[in-house]
Design a protein around this nucleic acid. Structure first.
Lengths: 198, 198
DNA sequence: TGCCATTTGACACCAAGTCTCGTTTTTGGA
DNA sequence: TCCAAAAACGAGACTTGGTGTCAAATGGCA
């Protein structure tokens, strides 16, 4: 036991998320006020903002803000080529999301339907671009803003993640995340000069 | 003359933008309330919202919301390879921004300093990814979500635009936009399999 | 039990954005 | 030139997200 205090905090957080997602599902994100959420969760208004900075944060998963990806990249062996390191680390991430795909459905539906959420979501993924470029540049002994190759890897890899999510979402899950991600990375690896046969 | 009405509207819009940018420069975007802007512009509060949907829209240029890019792509000759069409169309866009670079400085400084503006800006550029992919897929007779090559072109090209802006901004304009854009596109064209020599 | 630190909720406050409504200004036709 | 319809405007009330303060409640621990 880590103490009654921590347990209660965890319970409160779950209560907020539960109440909020239920209401969002029922009457929409923008059609739900924070007052309604706190009423349903049985807490005070101030408490809500002690757990989440904004209403958006209830939907967006704070665990994927970049630090985690940075760690995963740092753990790759230094002998590996940077491009391969990025690919393998992100494949791992995609596998993770693949396992969680059931839970992600509801979340994605809400994110897609609200502009404010789409903004934040896109912004976050675009940040990965920078993180990856910095990693590649560091391994190559360059600086990312001076190294087109490092930037290109960052753009391609984070873009491949986005594309995989699109295909997964629009294909109603028909195509798995890791699979699409690998296909995209292969396309980038081969070069865009000459289009592949149809 | 297109009528006194239209002329006055144009003047009012300019007055709002002028007053707003001055105040943003002076006391920051978030440190400036809409009431201050309308007071300085000499208009009513309601009028502000008749011209701009949000405070952010005053800073962001509504002319680059995607429709314009879509037009430029559509105008490319059909004989051209899709990849080349995208490249040439975007080079044109970069040239346009290059010419406007003086005016863009102030705007970029404000955008960079405010999270809400960064969000919207990134979102907009990421939308280009989709527009480009749809164009390439249409020319190839495929659907973008089923065509990794089309998606890859979209990701690479819009990413190259972003990268060019980064380099331009962080290098204090030392490196020109069109130049960096071309370097990025060349890197993508060659393929990311084997890194270029340093 | 009793003291201290943390957590909590009530409340006041600010600013963005929406809506309504009555007034002013422009337009185009008689 | 005058007038009526249409368009633009300003005032102000209202909702809601987000911040800050403060006193009360609650868990941790001796």
């Amino acid at each position: 036991m880590v103490g009654l205090r921590a347990a209660k905090k965890e319970a409160t957080k779950l209560a907020i998320v539960g109440a909020a997602l239920d209401l969002f599902e029922l009457q929409g994100f923008e059609g739900t006020s924070i007052d309604e959420i706190v009423a349903k969760a049985g807490i005070g208004r101030s408490t809500f903002f002690r757990y989440f900075e904004t209403k958006e944060d209830v939907v967006l998963d704070s665990r994927w803000d970049g630090a985690r990806l940075r760690c995963m990249l740092a753990e790759r062996p230094t002998g590996e080529s940077p491009c391969r390191s990025v690919r393998l680390a992100l494949e791992q991430v995609m596998e993770h999301f693949h396992v969680e795909r059931k839970r992600m459905r509801k979340q994605v539906r809400i994110i897609k339907s609200v502009e404010a959420l789409r903004l934040r979501h896109f912004y976050r993924v675009t940040l990965w671009e920078r993180i990856i470029a910095e990693f590649v540049a560091a391994r190559r002994g360059t600086h990312h803003s001076e190294d087109p190759y490092a930037m290109a890897i960052g753009i391609a890899a984070s873009g491949a993640v986005r594309a995989a999510f699109y295909a997964w979402d629009e294909g109603r899950g028909h195509r798995a995340l890791p699979e699409t991600f690998r296909a995209m990375m292969d396309t980038f690896a081969a070069g865009l000069e000459k289009p592949p046969k149809l």
